[in-house]
Design a protein around this nucleic acid. Structure first.
Length: 272
DNA sequence: ATAATAACCTGAGGGC
DNA sequence: TGCCCTCAGGTTATTA
């Protein structure tokens, strides 16, 4: 479900309720997520959370003895609820807080993860070798140009590779390629320098705008206060196969790349 | 080393 | 109503 904007919206939603607040208890109802939840997660208990951070699509809850590493997978959702709110199906983890609230992790498909590290979480194997954050200056047209020179992979799955840049999932890859007028199947090394600049600009624009709008709610995702994200109203291609292109009115087409649906306008995004 | 694909899991929706 | 199939916002592990 969540790409970078949805994770960032979740971080913004939970931070005011967590920062500086002591964890009273961690309740694990279903310990088998993508990986088993380690018992060390209980080291959070009795300790204050002093910083809530995001790296790629991971949320890092920094505590005194280490950090919890949380990933929402495809269907994960976080909510802040009053203490004592009854758990429902797929409510796998509660982090009970000293302020009368609880942070609840809900994840039907259980592709999400909750891990623990007592080291610097940025050195964790899952985070160590990731590409730059898309909303920083490190992710530039020059960077994309240089990285793409030797890859013959189609630009869309290439852009979704976390070693290239983090946080760009299926929705926003489709949207950014449309904005940059680049066909999703173009081989990465065929992009011109100008196209790399356009694509980086498009990625930054679409992600920043989606964060402003509270993310994209299709099915599962909701903000931590239970409200949906409104960026779905601004989607130009994702989920719009067969509908007219917003620019030229030609029907949008769909193809599959790396088992993911890619929607594009054959007129505005020519192969060459 | 790089690149495609299979796998993890549940639920929704369509066709019959 | 029910069964079977496909698809879904992600990422790792396996295979070629």
């Amino acid at each position: 479900m969540p790409e970078l904007p949805e994770v960032e919206v979740s971080r913004l939603g939970i931070t005011p309720w967590l920062e500086g607040v002591v964890v009273q208890r961690v309740i694990i109802r279903h310990p088998r997520l993508r990986w088993p939840i380690p018992a060390e997660i209980h080291l959070l208990e009795g300790q204050p959370l002093h910083k809530i951070e995001r790296r790629a699509k991971y949320l890092l809850l920094h505590s005194t003895l280490g950090a919890a590493i949380l990933h929402l997978g495809m269907s994960g959702r976080l909510r802040i609820l009053p203490a004592g709110t009854p758990a429902e199906k797929h409510d796998h983890v509660d982090i009970e807080l000293a302020n009368g609230k609880l942070l609840r992790f809900h994840d039907p498909r259980r592709f999400g993860a909750l891990l623990w590290t007592s080291e610097d979480p940025f050195q964790h194997p899952l985070l160590k070798n990731m590409g730059p954050e898309p909303l920083t200056e490190t992710f530039s047209g020059d960077y994309l140009w240089q990285r793409s020179r030797k890859s013959i992979t189609a630009i869309k799955p290439w852009l979704m590779n976390n070693h290239v840049v983090v946080g760009v999932g299926n929705i926003y890859a489709n949207e950014a390629l449309f904005m940059a007028h680049i066909h999703p199947k173009r081989s990465a090394n065929t992009l011109s320098h100008e196209e790399c600049l356009l694509l980086v600009k498009a990625v930054k624009e679409v992600l920043a705008r989606a964060i402003e709008q509270g993310g994209t709610t299709l099915r599962d995702f909701m903000r931590t206060d239970g409200k949906p994200g409104y960026f779905v109203q601004e989607l130009q291609v994702y989920g719009r196969t067969g509908l007219p292109c917003s620019v030229c009115m030609h029907p949008l087409e769909e193809l599959r790349l790396g088992q993911r649906s890619s929607v594009y306008c054959p007129v505005c995004q020519p192969m060459r």
